[in-house]
Design a protein around this nucleic acid. Structure first.
Lengths: 108, 108
DNA sequence: AGATGCTATCTTGTTATGCAAGGTAGCTAT
DNA sequence: ATAGCTACCTTGCATAACAAGATAGCATCT
């Protein structure tokens, strides 16, 4: 149940996290996944369906870069729509947080 | 999509919110639902499956109270397990929040 | 008595998303 | 050729919130 709570908490936030990471610099999926696995325990299989969704929604574009140490990497870059979505989702996350904090109150 | 994000954000948090409300005072489901609908836009059909889950998990017990203005109300009361769960989930929420805030960083 | 309106409870099928496990493919080194 | 590492990808499952529908009790009115 604790694990389940953790899983459920992540829903809705991972896209925002990816948008935020990409706003700082273009990255490839595996790198994003590794980063988020470390920071918030995102699972291995999550990133690719997520990136595909974001691409389908026009939030990112992709380009290939040859890697010197392995297979070519598919880099993702935020579109203007992606940047707009980031701004909006960040606001929604902040508002949501404020609401939850109010409900949780100060007690216990 | 925006709406979907909102829905996904709530997953995993609503139980914590209910625990928090009940930690302050026993309440009946409809009242909890009204309160959370107002505070964070929880949907109408959510509360009863949630309360049933929490009861099955031993987080709450119930008792009936006759109402002077309508049908009898089924009040919910936190168990000791419920209070323990509240403490734990609050910590997890805080930790999760900190992680997400770190990822979001300060810039756009 | 029945009808109406409000309060309160409850169920169920759908939707969306993360997870885990499995798989493929390219590059380098042996 | 194989092995190991990096990187990409799919798919079925599990979960929880939503929306819509339903039922039931109580008070009031006719």
């Amino acid at each position: 149940m604790t694990d389940s709570i953790q899983v459920q908490l992540k829903k809705g936030v991972l896209e925002l996290c990816v948008l935020a990471l990409l706003s700082k610099q273009d990255s490839y999926a595996y790198e994003i996944a590794s980063r988020l696995a470390e920071d918030i325990g995102m699972g291995e299989g999550t990133i690719y369906p997520l990136m595909r969704r974001m691409q389908n929604d026009g939030l990112v574009t992709t380009y290939l870069v040859d890697s010197e140490t392995g297979p070519p990497r598919k880099y993702y870059k935020l579109t203007q729509s992606g940047r707009t979505a980031l701004t909006r989702q960040r606001k929604e996350w902040d508002a949501f947080n404020t609401s939850v904090r109010t409900i949780l109150g100060s007690g216990t």
